[in-house]
């Protein structure tokens, strides 16, 4: 009669699953992984020798070896890691604050249809406004400090988080609310025991988007004003016709974005462990 779905990944699946190391080794041996690495090798080779082959000068596309050399030069001469740390810290703070604000406003608007009705036109207007356009304004307000960078990141991260949390609360099964009410739950209990958790899956969808947007916000802020961060190095390299420096900056910014994204996915797997076959749907990413 009643059978349990053994294939579903549950809390017990973790104890019997192979270790991280075994899984990594197995993954590396897979054909698809080998092909994927092959693509990388081909790409790097094309980057190294392609430009010379087509007579593209190094100030347009510097070969990969030159970008590497520039990377090590920047470490010693330009305090590269100081700038990386600066940008990374701004991304983390901007992402965290944007997330908290988005959750807060999302939950508030979700619980109060009146507030949503009153505020939605303004929120929509702010959402449509290109957030990066605010960067020069924030620099005017706060000068060449970390604040304009963080503020742009907060603003840009805020929307996907808020919209997802709000949507989750709006579409919450009314019978679930009634169930809690029938047990005489207070408004606060309804929030902490039902609404808060119900909004988690959409919240994480928003966080995935937000983690990459935070990098954009910070870079734009840095490009507009100041003398720190990868955004600054990017503009500086561009201004001094140092294409390799621009490439290094772009690559490191991408790495920061990837780390932020992976951190979100890692957290998501732990928080949303109760959702079956989470990894499968995202291709393991």
């Amino acid at each position: 009669m009643d059978t349990i779905d053994k294939s579903a990944a549950g809390p017990h699946a973790a104890t019997t699953a192979p270790s991280w190391w075994t899984r990594t080794c197995r993954a590396l041996m897979r054909r698809e992984t080998a092909l994927s690495i092959g693509v990388l090798v081909v790409f790097l080779a094309a980057w190294e020798w392609g430009p010379a082959l087509f007579d593209i000068p190094a100030y347009i596309i510097p070969p990969v070896s030159e970008v590497f050399a520039e990377f090590f030069r920047m470490i010693t001469v330009d305090r590269l890691f100081y700038h990386v740390g600066y940008t990374a810290a701004e991304v983390i703070v901007g992402f965290a604050l944007g997330t908290l604000l988005g959750m807060l406003i999302g939950y508030i608007l979700g619980m109060s249809p009146t507030a949503e009705f009153v505020l939605s036109p303004y929120i929509l207007a702010l959402q449509i406004a290109p957030k990066v356009a605010f960067a020069p304004l924030f620099v005017m307000w706060f000068g060449f400090t970390v604040y304009p960078k963080i503020l742009v990141a907060v603003l840009i991260v805020f929307f996907p988080i808020m919209v997802n949390v709000l949507g989750a609360i709006r579409t919450l099964d009314h019978d679930l609310v009634n169930l809690a009410r029938s047990f005489n739950a207070s408004r606060l209990q309804l929030f902490w025991k039902v609404e808060f958790h119900a909004a988690m899956p959409p919240l994480f969808a928003g966080l995935r988007i937000g983690s990459t947007l935070a990098v954009i916000g910070v870079v734009v802020g840095e490009m507009v004003g100041g003398n720190t961060g990868l955004g600054y190095l990017l503009v500086f390299g561009s201004g001094s016709a140092n294409t390799a420096m621009v490439f290094v900056s772009i690559i490191l910014l991408t790495l920061i974005g990837i780390l932020a994204y992976v951190a979100v996915v890692w957290t998501e797997r732990r928080v949303l462990h109760y959702i079956p076959a989470r990894g499968a749907a995202t291709g393991g990413i």
Binding site: D2, I4, A8, G10
Partner: peptide
């Protein structure tokens, strides 16, 4: 036996 299971692991009847 199912106290620590999660709802998605159970059949409709359970």
């Amino acid at each position: 036996g199912f106290a620590d299971h999660y709802p998605h692991q159970l059949s409709g009847g359970m």
